[in-house]
Design a protein around this nucleic acid. Structure first.
Lengths: 205, 205
DNA sequence: TCCAAAACAGGTCGGTTATCCTGTTTTCAT
DNA sequence: ATGAAAACAGGATAACCGACCTGTTTTGGA
């Protein structure tokens, strides 16, 4: 390898560089998908060389798993799990989150879909490791909602005959599907239609 | 181009060959996804040469659009629209279809997901033509359910205050999301949990 | 029968991609 | 201070993919 005449100043920042790569990958995987994003794209976006990228993430799959474990899980945590925990009730939390996401999407004018669902559809069949990592997030999401509803029932804020697991599964499934439709139609209307489902205690659909 | 010493017997069957390619593509796009499937894969599976493939489908995108327009649309038609039309009521039709799909998946032991949702997640953001084609199918699906529910209301088989558009959106969204979760967890349980949502007229979730 | 067009064969080619490798620089424990 | 390990730079490379192209065979209408 030829010696470069003048070498650029360099400041080692392993964790910072790693996070910059994850930033770029989270964004690109969300916007274009895993397969449609090349490592060259990520190198450009993150301003990272091939050597550095390979040092932190030996393969693309390792990077993909890191995005799922560290970023997608955190996004679900922030968007759904924490709001549900802090809400007055599970029903209110679910309903408010639907509305909050719809409002955010409407103001940004473009629907990129749910990060979890996007990666789940593309990767869960292709690779067992991906599938396990993604399934774990779905499970945590549902568990948080079911837990909240059970605590509602304990304080008499929810009818005892409501099945927590069923309610949680329905909330997650409806949200995931509504986001899928919103993404394909580029219209958040379906999110608002579905949100009202969880508003009242007894609903006629 | 060198002349081959002995030429193989050939029987031109343009439509049959085209359908064989669509068969292979529909299956592979569903199992592995659009980007993860190469044209070389399809040539092997369908037993078709590059020349023939290129003759019928000049680009991969043309092939993808053909799969969406001719196969995915037909699958939704067969799995959802026709059963809904022939059902006793919209509610019964939706509920029965959930159960039928769950039963079919359970016996085949593997969840590959909904063809429409799989392709919608991978392609609707990347390309406007793909998005339009996919959105059209979602719209037709919802329209069929809403139409059925309106006819139920006309004959007094459904409460007048049920909003047909909302019911249809909810059914499609819930099914799509439930299939996404079932695919990621490889467990059809969530489908059955969600199906019961549409059974009764008044439901406590 | 004959010929133009459609159908098909089979290979080429440029571009891309993920991985890997060698060499250099920075960091840190001793 | 110093040596080893970590962090990073910058290509190299082999495989792959989609598009395309030339030539051959079949088909069907005139």
């Amino acid at each position: 390898m030829p010696t470069t005449g003048l070498s650029r100043r360099r400041t080692n920042d392993p964790e910072g560089l790693r996070q910059r790569v994850l930033d770029a990958a989270e964004e690109a995987f969300q916007a274009r998908g895993y397969h449609a994003t090349s490592l060259g794209d990520l190198m450009k976006i993150a301003g990272v060389t091939g050597g550095a990228l390979h040092h932190h993430f030996p393969t693309k799959k390792v990077l993909g798993l890191a995005v799922i474990d560290e970023r997608v899980a955190a996004a679900v945590e922030e968007t759904w799990i924490r709001p549900i925990e802090q809400a007055a009730s599970a029903r209110e939390g679910v309903c408010a989150t639907f509305a909050a996401v719809a409002a955010e999407l409407e103001q940004q004018g473009f629907v990129r879909g749910c990060p979890l669902n996007n990666l789940a559809h593309e990767l869960s069949l292709a690779d067992s490791d991906f599938r396990t990592a993604l399934a774990r997030i779905y499970a945590a999401w549902q568990a948080a909602i079911a837990l909240k509803l059970r605590s509602d029932q304990d304080v008499g804020a929810e009818e005892p005959k409501t099945d927590p697991e069923r309610f949680a599964a329905l909330a997650v499934a409806t949200y995931s599907g509504a986001m899928a439709i919103a993404k394909a139609t580029q219209d958040v209307g379906v999110l608002l239609l579905c949100a009202s489902q969880f508003a009242g205690e007894v609903v006629v659909i």
